[in-house]
Design a protein around this nucleic acid. Structure first.
Lengths: 138, 138
DNA sequence: CTACCCGTGCAACGGAAGTGCATTTATTGT
DNA sequence: ACAATAAATGCACTTCCGTTGCACGGGTAG
């Protein structure tokens, strides 16, 4: 509990009750979370608050946004000390076509790509799709 | 003109006037095209027709869909003879943060990734973002 | 010639992201 | 402790985009 407050403070996010709850929720889930997910989990809170909380988290580097190709924006906590902006910290994501969940594979960095003359890469997004470990075990 | 008709026939798409025009439009542009782009280019035609044309093209393997992270679905012609389903034919895409255009880098295949135990990849999507050759030259 | 299928067009729906403004809650300075 | 200020929350509304249902019409096949 206290660790969460501290973590938020470190990132320049004021630790309100709502924000701590949302952080906790994200920490418990090991998968990427959409705004709608949070919305249903916190049906008492307002959508806008949840939306802006995620955006604040994102701006302050608490979470990173994930585009898994479903057309819905998802979010997951950043590793402590990670700098998502830096190319070396870009990990890949895996989207399961069976259970429809997306997970971070933080151990797997995106390999460096040699681009044609004139192209300058600043950011990268790699999503693999298939069957995840939980679903393939069945 | 005749080549387009033939190409569509080969892919099991009946070459109507509308479809030939859309194919031609896609062939002229060397960047990925959104439904809205086509909509503005063919303001006389109906949105639904254009939408369904793209979907038909996609299903029949005439075009492939691109998710470049902008939240808008884009499409580009498949290389003749390419099989987008197969992993070896998956190329990467580059999205320019300056001109906001997305291009296929068909020469650059997505490198193979070794996944953790239990994960089975069927598909992959790699998008690099930065400054494209046209914009970096300025 | 007729029946049918498929392409096209019109209208409407629904999900998700985002914004403007009012209100409440927290923080700072005196 | 209190006023002034800033930040967070809540409500209403908008916009954009993808998608679907239904009706019309022209071409194709029997």
């Amino acid at each position: 509990m206290k660790e969460i407050e501290q973590r938020l403070n470190e990132n320049g996010v004021r630790p309100t009750a709502m924000r701590i709850l949302i952080y906790k929720y994200l920490a418990e889930k090991e998968v990427a979370i959409s705004l709608t997910d949070i919305e249903t989990a916190f049906s008492n809170a307002d959508r806008t608050t949840l939306f802006r909380t995620l955006k604040t988290f994102e701006k302050k580097g608490v979470v990173h946004q994930i585009d898994d190709g479903t057309g819905v924006q998802k979010y997951a906590l950043c590793e402590p000390g990670c700098n998502c902006e830096l190319e070396q910290d870009l990990h890949l994501h895996f989207h399961c076509n069976n259970c429809d969940e997306t997970v971070c594979l933080t151990e797997h960095k995106i390999p460096h790509i040699n681009l044609p003359e004139g192209f300058v890469a600043e950011d990268a997004n790699l999503v693999l799709k298939g069957i995840c470990d939980k679903c393939s075990g069945q």
